[in-house]
């Protein structure tokens, strides 16, 4: 076991981990942050996306030991300071960008990373950026709408409903 220390959602945390302990396991099991989900074994579904040092990564495909000393942000730390939904979260609710909710944390974290890189993405850019996030419920339509809306872009003009 080795000791790892990191800043998770603004709080310093530490724990003893095995070499094989994944960042996702550290977050879910040691830290009780179960909003980060595990939907596959091959680094494709994206339900486990968190930010490490500001970058989106798949926490099921990163060792906890590799995140030693890093700043980690998860879905649990995304809401505004007063507990209200942040802009992206609110847009997901307003535009029905989630159904069962299982892929949602990864979607929100990927969306946050996208909008940081590209504040006004086109619809095609949003879809391309979500290549590593699989949703089985929504058909992506409302996720794309939500992210466009969160970026301040006109949604009705986009959707042929």
């Amino acid at each position: 076991m080795t000791k790892v220390t990191m800043t998770v959602n603004g709080k310093a945390v530490s724990g003893d981990v095995e070499g094989r302990t994944l960042l996702s396991s550290f977050l879910r099991e040691d830290q009780g942050l179960t909003g980060t989900h595990i939907g596959c074994d091959t680094s494709q579904c994206g339900a486990c996306v968190v930010h490490v040092d500001g970058q989106a990564v798949k926490s099921c495909t990163m060792l906890a030991a590799e995140a030693d000393g890093a700043t980690v942000d998860t879905i649990e730390g995304q809401a505004n300071a007063d507990g209200s939904l942040n802009v992206i979260q609110q847009a997901f609710q307003d535009h029905h960008g989630l159904q069962c909710g299982f892929c949602t944390p990864g979607m929100v974290m990927s969306a946050a990373a996208l909008l940081k890189e590209n504040p006004k993405p086109s619809e095609a850019e949003v879809r391309e950026y979500l290549e590593g996030n699989i949703c089985r419920c929504t058909g992506y339509h409302n996720i794309v709408k939500a992210i466009m809306a969160a970026s301040g872009q006109d949604v009705p003009a986009l959707a042929a409903e």
């Binding site: 596959c40 091959t42 494709q44 579904c45 879809r127 391309e128 949703c135 992506y140 986009l158 042929a160």
Partner: peptide, 20 residues
């Protein structure tokens, strides 16, 4: 037997839908 070979539809496989 995994997402490496079973294709799940992704966002970039889908158009915006027209629903009524």
């Amino acid at each position: 037997a995994s997402y490496m070979d079973y294709t799940m539809p992704r966002a970039d496989d889908m158009p915006m839908f027209a629903v009524d």
